[in-house]
């Protein structure tokens, strides 16, 4: 859809898609400016997650049937692979947050390859930022609550090092924990989705342009390559989408753990 609009205004020369891929007009003409495609599908993704888990866990049975089986596989995956390695015996308590984070991010990412939607919600940095800021707040709150307002800051610094080292280490440690960590938490997800969408758009546009828009004998091969690479990259993106959701939830678990207990 987006590619078509780009093509319509593209003229005769092939132009690679740029950041304009990520700008959307209001969903319908005359609608509110904030109601754009990413906004709409962000809410839609949240609803999908709610509905799927409602179908699975609304009335959970001792012997699972149908959707409950699927839901339990998801729950077990998040619990055993993401939460437990970091949180140990506190796992159950943090499952609501981690399950929400993982499936929210994953469904937003999957939208990247769902026909008609074809846009990764997390490639608009506001969405990963909201999640990362929330996790950051939880982390700092837990640190104050469980380690104390002073201890939280002193626990972070390893003890028994030569004095000069601390001049270097203390600023780095605080910078990384309080500024860089939440930033990279959000940007890692955002950048992966952003770049993935850009690459997919580029190759699909190559295919579309050289096979349909301006079919020429010379361009036929290039167009074919574009289509094949698009298919391969779509498969690759599926992996990346899952991996980034996994990583996002895993880092959240790690940050929560760092608030609950001192690392060093």
């Amino acid at each position: 859809m987006n590619a078509l609009t780009v093509l319509a205004s593209g003229g005769d020369k092939f132009e690679a898609p740029g950041t304009e891929l990520f700008d959307f007009p209001p969903l319908f003409p005359g609608g509110p400016a904030w109601l754009t495609k990413p906004v709409f599908f962000a809410v839609f993704g949240a609803l999908v997650v709610c509905v799927v888990f409602w179908m699975a866990f609304a009335k959970p049975k001792l012997v699972p049937r149908g959707m409950q089986n699927v839901g339990e596989v998801g729950y077990m995956f998040v619990r055993d692979q993401i939460a437990r390695p970091f949180l140990g015996k506190n796992t159950e308590q943090w499952m609501p947050l981690l399950l929400t984070l993982f499936f929210m991010v994953w469904i937003w990412n999957i939208f990247s390859v769902v026909p008609i939607i074809q846009f990764p919600i997390a490639s608009h940095i506001a969405f990963p930022a909201v999640l990362a800021i929330f996790v950051y707040c939880v982390k700092v709150y837990l640190g104050f609550k469980h380690q104390g307002p002073v201890k939280y800051f002193t626990n972070m610094i390893p003890k028994g090092l030569p004095l000069p080292v601390y001049f270097l280490l203390v600023p780095i440690e605080y910078l990384s924990t309080f500024i860089i960590a939440p930033f990279t938490h959000a940007v890692r997800l955002f950048a992966n989705m952003f770049a993935g969408h850009m690459i997919l758009a580029f190759f699909s546009l190559v295919g579309f342009w050289f096979l349909f828009e301006k079919p020429t004998a010379a361009g036929f091969g290039i167009g074919l390559v574009g289509v094949v690479v698009t298919i391969l990259l779509t498969a690759f993106e599926l992996l990346i989408q899952f991996l980034q959701a996994f990583l996002f939830a895993m880092l959240a678990a790690m940050y929560i753990q760092s608030g609950l207990h001192a690392d060093h």
């Binding site: 906004v39 949240a46 709610c50 888990f53 929210m104 506001a126 909201v130 999640l131």
Partner: peptide
């Protein structure tokens, strides 16, 4: 919208 949808999922699912 992001915080809204996140909170909805957190409440319903979590």
């Amino acid at each position: 919208v992001g915080i809204f949808s996140f909170l909805v999922v957190l409440i319903v699912v979590g």
